[in-house]
Structures are given as C-alpha cells and as structure tokens.
Amino acid sequence: MLDLYSPGTSLLHRLPPAAKMLAMLIGATLLFLNESLPITVAATLGILALYPIAQLTLKQAFAQIRPLLIIFVLFFAVQWYFSGLELAAYVVLRLTALILLASLVTLTTRSSDMIDTMTRGLRHLKPLGVNPEKVSLAISLALRFIPVLAQITREVREAQKTRGLERSVIAVAMPMAIRAIKMADDISDAIDSRGYRS
C-alpha cells in the first residue's frame, strides 16, 4: 500500500500509535503556548535529535520540510520586514519544529496500524451513531477506488483522443464521473447481494 512509513525497529517504531499521537498533540500544543525563541530553538534541535534515535536520517527530516521551503521563505521575509528578525526566526522555527514532530509520527507508524487504532477509537463514538464497521468498509473501498479512478480517466482520455477531444476538460471529466457513479452503484449492489448488513 502507498504509505509514507519508513521501516525500522526503534523505540519510536515500537510505541503504540495512540501513545505517539497523544505525545505529538501535547508537543504541538506546547510549541504553540511557548513564546520564547531560545526554547523554540531547543525544541527544534530536540525533535531533530529524535530522528537518528528513530533510525531516520537528517535527509529524511529535510525532505519533510522541503515542500514548504518557499512558503517558509515568504513568511520569513514578510515577518522580518514588518516585525523584525527575531519574530521571523521564531515563526519559521516553530513551524519547522511542528512539522518535524508530526512527520516523526507519520514516518514511524504504518498507515494500516494507524487506521486500526483509529477504528478501534471509533468504537467509543458508537453512542453518537458511528458504526466502526461502516467506517472500515469506507476506508478499504476508498483505497481501492483511487487506482481504479486513475484507470477510468486513462480510458476515457484515450477514447476522447480518437475524437480529438482529449484536451477538453469537460469532455473527459463528464464521462469519467458518470462511469465512476455507475461503478459505485454496481459495487454497492454486489455488496448487498452478498448479504452485507449495513
């Protein structure tokens, strides 16, 4: 399955997902409550130090930040111009720390384990009308549908190419959407006919 997980055997890999998520939420809240630059620097370095402990490289840590580099530069420049260097450094470092912390959980936890933990957690929401079995069904269907939708798009685009319409967004999107709904109808009939009780 497609996943951002990085395999390993460290303590962070072995911790239960729920504990990691809780620790991350507490850590993120503390980062927001703290207003001092030195503490933010220390927190960033501390989180960075957890990467080797979790058998992750600093390259992997940087890869988490890379997609945001442009927005970081932009934020830094705007803050520096309007509010001075210290606040600019504080804001960007706090963001960096936050993302490194959250990525640490993502990198050391399999999506499937995380999904299991969440569906187990959903049981407590049963009194509110949440049905964990239905949620599990929706999750597995959604993951299966992603490649199927990509395939349908390819087929429709090829069909429209023969008509010279492959560049028209609507001429591709419309038949694709109709085929996707038709597929969904067939699948729900198939599920019901096999005796799934919802």
Partner: peptide, 28 residues
C-alpha cells in the same frame, strides 16, 4: 433506529468514491 437509519451500503460506497476522487485529483 438512530444508527441504522444513517447510511445504506450505497451511501458508504459513494462516500468512499468521492474521498477517492479527491485523492485521484491530487495525482493530476
């Protein structure tokens, strides 16, 4: 009744389909 009134199989499949559609749009 409160829980079962909620979603039929068809609804669940549609929900999954549009979640997947949003993901597939990210591939473009």
């Amino acid at each position: 009744t409160t829980a079962s009134r909620g979603l039929a199989t068809k609804d669940i499949v549609y929900i999954a389909l549009f979640a997947a559609l949003t993901a597939a749009l990210g591939l473009m």
